[in-house]
Every structure is written in C-alpha cells, then in structure tokens.
C-alpha cells in the first residue's frame, strides 16, 4: 500500500537524518566537557611554568578564593538558565553581610544570620516579581536593584564597616587541614550547594521546568507550566544562595563592609558563562559553573604565580568570556537548524 511505503520512507529518512554529525555535536554540547578541558589545560600549563602552583597550600588557597564568587555564581547560574541575568547578586550579598553584621551587635548570631539570609530572599523576591509579574527585562530590573541595594546598604550602616568577632559567623573560613590541604567549611558548603542544586536541576520536576522556561517560554506555558511562578522561585532561591555567599564572605574576611565586592556580580557572570551555561537560557548547569569559577580563579592565581601583571589577568579573563559566548553561539547555531 502507498500508506505503508510512505511510512517506511519516513522511517528511513528519520534514521538517515539522525545518523550523521552527532558525535562532534554531542561532545561540544555536553555541559561540562569543554570547561573541564579548559581547566585541565590551565592547571597543566601553570604546573609546568610555575613552581608553587601545585603546592597544597596554593591549591587550598585557590579553593578558598573561589568560594564567594563560586557561591554567587551558583545563584547566577539559576537565573541565567531562565535566560535572565542578575547584576544585583553581589549587592544583595553585601546587604546580607551588613544585616548580619549589624544584627550580630545585639548578640544573637543565629538570628543575625537568619535575618541576613531573609533580607537577601526579600530582595530576590522583588527581582522575581518585577521580572515575572511586571514582565520587565531582568537586565534593567537587576541594574536598578543593584543601585538601590548598594545605596541602601551604605545608608543602613552610615558607610561604616562592622568587624565580626563571633565564631559561628566566621566559621566558614575555618576547616580541617589534611596533608597540607586546608579544606574550609566554606569550601565544603560551596561544593554541597553545587551538588544540591545539581540534584534539584537534574532530578526534580522544578529543575526540568526551569530549563523549559529558559529554553522556550511559550512552549512551557502551553505545557501547563506556571512560568511566572517558576521565575519568581528562581530569583528567590538564587537570593537565598547569595545569603549563604554573605556567610561565606564573612568567613573569608571577618568584616561587614558595605562597599566591598563591587565587581562580584560580573565575576559571577563570567564564571557561569565560562562554565558553559548559555546566556540564551535553557542550557548549562551548576557543575559547569563550579568549573567555570575554578577556571577564573586558577587563571588569576596562576598568572600571579608566574609574575604577570594583574591587568593582563583581566585581559585573559575578559577574552575567555568572549570565547565562551562564541562557542555557545556556534553550538546553538549548529543545533537549531
């Protein structure tokens, strides 16, 4: 029958089309392959050209230098997966540190910590509502919130810094030393958060929906997904992660400084993009982001070890971002025929 032959032809066509060019494409598109290779190259190069790079003390330092930006980048990754961007994450984290610092003056450090994280979550909810309900572009929303929150932190503290003395608030800077490697609780929290968010993104319905919302919002809506609610959730969860980054920051430097971390937002975006998450949304993830953070920090650390001017480090980081976006663009163009 014609019907049967038609069907057979169709099936043959499908098989033919699926068959070719898949190996390279899947390798290129795999979430962490590219970033991991870049990280390994950087590590090998710096190990060969500098003496101190591979020493346990330096590797521990790299991990510790990574935690604050790395944690911010995890929240940033969630936002970027929805095709958004969060310029305010550093400012939200700084707000968290000053709220914790000021509240801790009253003595109850646990309450101070909770208040700091709640303050971050509230600002995240404002971001999320403006993006999801008012439908404003995330770039503009978070730019505005960045400005407002930065000023608010200074007004709140009269631009003063608050030294943090309490053990609980700075505990993330401590940690056991094993064979010369110091693994701080902050590093552990960072890795734990990565694994936790990785689980949520890959193993739960919410995670699938985050990807779907970033990938194709109309399709997500037609599938019955409450797109606005997912977006709001993403900005709130991201902000809670920024609150934890505030705790990390106090472990790194035990001072709540309203004017600190002014470039952390861009650093976190850099880490996410280098880590293979697409600025167009729907592709990437937190493991890549962890690797992306390490790439940025290894590059800075290694170039410092090699005695290269820090301005060249910035040139290298900037160039890497553009390469990462280019690769993303090429991969996307190849895939969306």
């Amino acid at each position: 029958m014609t019907q049967a032959t038609l069907r057979q032809e169709a099936v043959a066509d499908l098989q033919k089309e699926v068959g070719h060019g898949r190996g390279i494409r899947s390798l290129l598109s795999h979430q962490v392959t590219g970033p991991l290779a870049a990280l390994l190259v950087a590590v090998v190069v710096f190990s060969v050209f500098t003496d101190r790079f591979l020493q346990p003390g330096n590797l521990s330092l790299i991990a510790q230098q990574s935690v604050v930006v790395g944690t911010l980048a995890l929240g940033q990754a969630l936002v970027i997966l929805t095709a958004g961007i969060d310029l305010a994450n550093g400012a939200i984290m700084v707000l968290g540190t000053v709220v914790i610092g000021k509240a801790a003056l009253d003595g109850d450090v646990v309450l101070a910590l909770v208040l700091g994280i709640v303050a971050c979550a509230v600002v995240g909810a404002v971001n999320g509502l403006l993006v999801s309900r008012a439908g404003l572009p995330p770039f503009i929303v978070t730019l505005g919130v960045l400005t407002v929150v930065t000023a608010a932190s200074r007004l709140y503290t009269d631009s003063a810094s608050y030294p943090i003395a309490d053990g609980l608030l700075t505990v993330l800077g401590d940690g056991p030393t094993i064979g010369g490697f110091t693994v701080t609780y902050g590093v552990m929290l960072w890795v734990l958060l990565t694994v936790g968010l990785g689980y949520v993104l890959s193993q739960t319905a919410w995670g699938v929906r985050v990807y779907a919302v970033g990938d194709n919002p109309p399709a997500a809506r037609l599938a019955g997904i409450k797109v606005k609610r997912v977006l709001l959730g993403v900005y709130v969860v991201a902000a809670i992660v920024y609150g934890l980054a505030a705790w990390q920051a106090l472990g790194r430097t035990p001072t709540a400084d309203p004017s600190g971390y002014s470039t952390a937002n861009l650093d976190s975006i850099t880490a996410v993009v280098i880590g293979g998450t697409s600025l167009f949304g729907g592709r990437g993830g937190v493991y890549g982001t962890l690797i992306g953070t390490l790439i940025v920090v290894v590059l800075q650390n290694g170039l410092t070890q090699a005695g290269i001017d820090s301005l060249y480090q910035q040139v290298a980081t900037g160039a890497l971002v553009i390469v990462a976006v280019l690769v993303d663009r090429i991969v996307r163009r190849r895939q969306t025929r």
Partner: peptide, 18 residues
C-alpha cells in the same frame, strides 16, 4: 512553539506532567 529544543524527547513528552 510546541517543544523545548534543549530538553530531550522524554522530558518534552512529560513536560508539566512529570
């Protein structure tokens, strides 16, 4: 508009009904 290109076939079939 019916499908999410970055998700796999199975994720698309069960999208919203996981």
């Amino acid at each position: 508009l019916g499908v999410a290109p970055a998700l796999d076939i199975s994720q698309n079939l069960y999208l919203g009904r996981e």
